[in-house]
């Protein structure tokens, strides 16, 4: 069994842990396993099939795939039994990363998501666009710190725009935190690539600074073999990475139309 979690007994049974926290750990560690989730409160049981930290499939009563996973993530006070992943469950049926899915469920439950500590500690101005004609605004209000929240639904809509506009050329995409490299939303999400390209972006930023070169602009592009490309867009507390097939993608359209459009969408998601 390709798991190495601490367990409360020899059968790999965990009690008293929060499922969402545990799933983020599984994703971060890149574990492969089947999790049998039991919720005593509602007397239900379900299964999550995870391969290399990526959620492949889920089953819960009459629900399958994404619907089953979303249902189980809502459960509280669960028991988690860690088992070996059956070979029959090696087919990926869920696009979202575990972190993305958790945020989606939290968003649906109308829970505000605070991006990260650094973002919430920034000095934030609450500018009133409806100032009167004399421009007399409330100075006290304009300099008040406010909490930045993420509109998760808007974030997913922005991913959909990218998928629709790039079509088959988009092989994978992730929006990940600059602090930890954890994907918060994406399509055919790649947790390992998110973590590694996050480190790479830090390295490139440091290399430019250390060289006395101008800082990184809007994005960087890597030309890969077989006509593929990686594009990484630094966006403050977040970064957006995408793997595209350049032979199936009109790069002019992507760089000049689609990227500005998704940046606008992401900006709306963080400003509410």
């Amino acid at each position: 069994m390709n798991v190495g979690f601490p367990s409360s007994d020899d059968k790999g049974l965990l009690r008293g842990v929060t499922l969402s926290n545990f799933l983020q750990l599984v994703e971060m560690e890149g574990n492969t396993c089947m999790l049998e989730i039991s919720c005593g409160r509602i007397k239900q049981k379900g299964f999550l099939f995870i391969n290399g930290g990526v959620l492949f499939d889920a089953e819960c009563g009459s629900l399958f795939g994404l619907g089953a996973a979303k249902e189980m993530i809502k459960w509280v006070d669960v028991e988690i039994l860690i088992r070996e992943l059956p070979k029959s469950k090696m087919v990926r049926k869920i696009d979202e990363s575990l972190t993305s899915l958790i945020l989606l469920v939290l968003g649906e439950e109308k829970t505000a998501f605070v991006p990260d500590e650094s973002a919430s500690e920034m000095e934030i101005y609450d500018i009133d666009l409806n100032m009167d004609k004399n421009g007399e605004d409330n100075e006290k209000q304009s300099n008040t710190k406010q909490e930045t929240t993420m509109d998760v639904q808007k974030l997913h809509e922005t991913i959909e725009v990218l998928k629709k506009d790039v079509g088959d050329g988009l092989l994978a995409t992730d929006i990940f935190g600059a602090a930890d490299g954890q994907s918060i939303a994406g399509h055919n999400t790649q947790p390992k690539a998110s973590a590694l390209f996050n480190k790479l972006t830090d390295f490139i930023t440091d290399a430019l600074t250390g060289s006395g070169f101008p800082a990184l602009g809007k994005y960087y592009i890597m030309d890969l073999v077989d006509g593929n490309m990686v594009i990484v867009i630094p966006m403050g507390s977040y970064r957006w990475g995408m793997l595209v097939n350049g032979e199936k993608t009109q790069m002019g359209l992507l760089l000049n139309i689609v990227i500005p459009k998704i940046i606008d969408g992401f900006e709306e998601a963080i400003t509410g």
Partner: peptide, 16 residues
């Protein structure tokens, strides 16, 4: 870059 633009948006609370 978009790094600066997102910081700008976060601090103003406004989107383009």
């Amino acid at each position: 870059g978009f790094d600066a633009r997102m910081e700008f948006a976060s601090r103003t609370g406004l989107s383009k």
